[in-house]
Computed example of a mutant assay.
Amino acid sequence: MLPGHTPSMDTNDTLILPFDNAVHRQAVIDLWKMVFDPLASYNDPAFAIDRKRAVDDLFFVAVENDTVIGTIMAGYDGHRGWIYSLAVHPDQRKHGIGSMLLHHAENALTKRGCFKINLQVRESNVDVIRFYEANGFAMEKILSMGKVVDQD
């Protein structure tokens, strides 16, 4: 376990733990391939895991009976926090796992001094929008822009 991190647990014995590459990597890759639509090469799970591990430790997994059933990554730039890659296995949805992961990441960001957390959701993903709204997030009238940077 990483220093300064303590696992959180709810009543159904689901643990929220820091991601451990040696233990969780393949299960996370499999989960992400199941639940995320890989639209671009930079969304490749192995690539995303390696890049995240290179910058910080705000990467957590939900584990039940030694099985990874959910993930979340967070980021913090010293001003705002971000939520990424919140995934819950389809068979485990509607049991509070996503909310547990989200609250764990929010607490980790808050401990670092974060006062505002952002996330992005596809406008067409109505169920996910409802989930975040139920967890205290609100839509903001902000246009999100992005640019893929060539990484030769």
Rank of each mutant, 00 (worst) to 15 (best):
L86N: 01
D50P: 07
L86H: 01
E133C: 05
F60P: 00
H24R: 06
F60H: 02
D50K: 14
E140A: 14
D150R: 07
N21H: 14
I69L: 07
D127C: 03
F47P: 01
H104G: 02
G98P: 00
D20S: 13
G4R: 06
R51E: 14
R53L: 15
Q92S: 12
G98A: 06
K111L: 13
D91F: 01
H104V: 00
D44N: 12
N65P: 03
A40G: 04
C114V: 08
I83R: 00
Q120R: 11
V148M: 07
D56Y: 03
M145Q: 07
L102G: 03
V121M: 01
D91R: 10
F60A: 10
R112N: 05
A87C: 04
L31D: 04
S144I: 07
G4N: 11
E123C: 08
N118T: 04
A74F: 05
D37V: 14
L17Y: 02
S8I: 13
M145H: 02
T14I: 15
A62T: 06
W82D: 11
F19K: 09
K94S: 14
C114R: 02
G113P: 07
Y76W: 12
G146R: 11
H104S: 03
G98R: 01
I72M: 08
H79K: 10
V61H: 04
N125C: 03
R130P: 00
D50Q: 15
L39D: 12
E140K: 13
N118W: 10
D10V: 04
L17D: 04
P3C: 05
I83V: 15
Q151R: 09
V148G: 05
A27S: 15
L86I: 15
H79F: 11
H5D: 09
F137E: 00
I142T: 10
D77N: 15
W32S: 07
D150H: 07
Q26I: 07
S8M: 09
